[in-house]
Design a protein around this nucleic acid. Structure first.
Lengths: 187, 187
DNA sequence: ACCTGAACACCGTTCAAGT
DNA sequence: ACCTGAACACCGTTCAAGT
């Protein structure tokens, strides 16, 4: 079935990037996982950058499809936001992996341009979503202030994930999110 | 003078890691910068992990020496904290580089054990410092709550840096820190 | 004490060749 | 349409050899 190998390659690659980083991703290693030769991967993704960009794009699309479904459902603000945060927590719960975005943002300096574009798209999409999700709770903030708040909430969640991963302790993520909430910074 | 080459190697390596990541660091590239052969680097640092661990340790020592000097000086809380944040901002101002800690935390899954130990030490030292610096502003918080708050502030700053680097825009860092402050989350 | 060249098994990439 | 083996310039690491 056409496209199948392509998906299998991407699945193997995504797991490795989230666990060990984009630079640690090896075509020969993916090839072993998938059961083809490393040269064959170049048929599906001419360069490593093409694979990285496709990875980031699919990651954003999948995440946003789920996040948008949370907006469609009739949920109260706390529940909706908790489910959003749970997605970032799930990466850590899965063998101390990290959000694909966070890994790639840290490796930004070594990323080809078209991968950077996809990395930017993830953060922009998340900020856009947070503006919609948090808006009702902040009638006091104007558009700019609300957007800045959404950006800050996104950054804070990414930071919680980064520090928790650096400690190898998901409890650090939970404690940090709880402290954000206790300070009244997020719902 | 003994130790000189060792320092030169570390200087070149640190700049590369902060710009492009630990995995992007190449012994042959450092060798060219320093003016020796790549095999010679192994005389000073037997493995890449030894170099990474030494890098992280020196980074923590240097940062903490400066941070502790901020505690000794007679500064008000806002000024002291602003100088702390300025250190993380400076990395971005320097060619969109990132805090060595943030880069390494993101690449945690691919790090040898003794490098992880040094990465952990940086976050622990920063949280300890923040407990001292923020304590006077939070007489209401008990020891545990204050430590959680310090951890959250550290995570939030790292997150601001990560997202700003991912956008390639230092303005995102400034906006995010300003939003944290506007929300009353940090001084 | 410090450096080097040569070798090893790795890496992404290219390309002519297979089916 | 999809895969492969062989070659290229890279990588960290080892080691015998130089000064």
């Amino acid at each position: 079935m056409t496209g199948d190998t392509r998906q299998t390659i991407m699945d193997a690659a995504r797991a490795t990037v989230q666990a060990r980083g984009y630079n640690a991703l090896s075509f020969r290693e993916i090839a072993k996982d998938v059961g083809i030769k490393s040269a064959s991967i170049h048929y599906h993704f001419p360069t490593k950058g093409d694979l990285g960009a496709a990875l980031a794009k699919r990651y954003t699309d999948d995440a946003m499809a789920y996040f948008d479904s949370l907006l469609d459902q009739d949920l109260d603000l706390e529940t909706r936001f908790a489910r959003y945060v749970a997605v970032f927590r799930a990466a850590l719960a899965n063998d101390n992996r990290m959000c694909l975005y966070g890994v790639m943002a840290a490796e930004y300096g070594d990323l080809p341009d078209h991968v950077r574009t996809e990395v930017d798209a993830f953060s922009a999409a998340n900020v856009g979503w947070l503006v919609k999700a948090l808006g009702p709770a902040h009638p006091d903030l104007d558009d700019t202030a609300l957007r800045d708040r959404a950006l800050a909430v996104f950054a804070a969640i990414e930071g919680a994930q980064l520090v928790a991963r650096g400690r190898g302790d998901i409890g650090v993520f939970d404690t940090t999110i709880a402290a954000y909430r206790a300070a009244g910074f997020m719902p």
